[in-house]
């Protein structure tokens, strides 16, 4: 795992992006071939990992070609200088607890208002958490429901404060909106791996399509070039015979010019596409 360099305050910024890790230079075709050969020699399939002794047998420049094992789910590593874990959503209850504490400590309205609003709010998950029976279409429906509920709650909240601005029902509605909005955020975040996979699939499909077109293009061109060349051969033979007949009548220079013109014509046909 590449560690980002520690951030120093007085570090002079010379480029916008840090340099790539130095081992990228080892990924040359020569090294890759050598590595594939090494794998063949030791009967290593693509998925099996190398044993430490095998790893030590490798020349230094090839060791970088062995991908490191993925971090264990509980191991911490740094991303953008912040420690993080593979399963990020696990600390969701923690974050919700922090929000609750903040709401308790800091009243919603500013200090100049005589009666500040303190919300005794607690997060509540409003959608089923088992992922097996909870399809992605269901998630979409839940998102729709939460969104419409937020709008409805807002209208209700308007009605409540119009009638009685300090009613307890107002606080309840505020809490409801907060819960609904955070549920939406949580749902959306749980959707992220799914979208990442979907994006990857879409990108691969585009790549397949592009390569297919390239292959087809080369094939079409090869057929055309062959046709042109065959035609040229036949035509060229004819011209040669003709030329023999008229060779004494046409001047040397004129014949050369004519020959070149034909050449250009054929070239245009081949390269002009």
């Amino acid at each position: 795992m590449a560690q980002p360099p520690p951030i120093e305050e007085d570090d002079v910024l010379t480029s916008y992006f840090p340099n790539p890790p130095p081992f990228y230079k080892h990924f040359t075709p020569k090294n890759l071939d050598a590595f594939a050969q090494f794998k063949d020699q030791h009967n290593i399939t693509d998925n099996a990992s190398l044993t430490p002794t095998q790893l030590l047998e490798l020349p230094t420049e090839l060791r970088y070609l062995v991908p490191p094992a993925p971090p264990s789910p509980s191991a911490e590593y740094t991303v953008f200088g912040r420690p993080t874990k593979l399963t990020r959503l696990d600390d969701f209850p923690e974050v919700m607890g922090q929000i609750r504490q903040r709401l308790l400590r800091h009243p919603l309205a500013g200090p100049e208002v005589a009666e500040a609003i303190v919300l005794d709010w607690e997060y509540e998950q409003l959608y089923p958490s088992s992922s097996s029976s909870f399809s992605f279409a269901d998630r979409q429906n839940y998102l729709f429901r939460f969104l419409r509920s937020i709008i409805l709650s807002y209208i209700e909240l308007l009605g409540i404060v119009a009638q009685e601005p300090t009613a307890a029902a107002r606080d309840q509605k505020l809490k409801d909106i907060l819960t609904l909005a955070l549920n939406m955020h949580a749902l959306v975040n749980e959707y992220r791996p799914h979208q990442a996979r979907e994006t990857l699939i879409g990108e691969t499909e585009r790549q397949v399509e592009r390569k297919r077109k390239e292959v087809e293009g080369v094939r079409e061109m090869s057929v055309r070039v062959r046709e042109v060349l065959e035609g040229f051969e036949r035509g060229g033979g004819g011209i040669r015979e003709e030329k023999a007949a008229v060779v004494r009548e046409v001047g040397e220079e004129e014949r050369r010019v004519q020959r070149q013109r034909e050449m250009w014509g054929v070239l245009d046909e081949v390269l002009g596409r």
């Binding site: 992605f136 279409a137 729709f144 699939i201």
Partner: peptide, 21 residues
């Protein structure tokens, strides 16, 4: 929300499709 990608695919189907591709 209506345009969320891959609503009809489950995770297994996605993995399957990725391998095919």
């Amino acid at each position: 929300i209506a345009n969320l990608p891959g609503l009809e695919n489950s995770e297994e189907e996605q993995v399957q499709r990725m391998k095919e591709l």
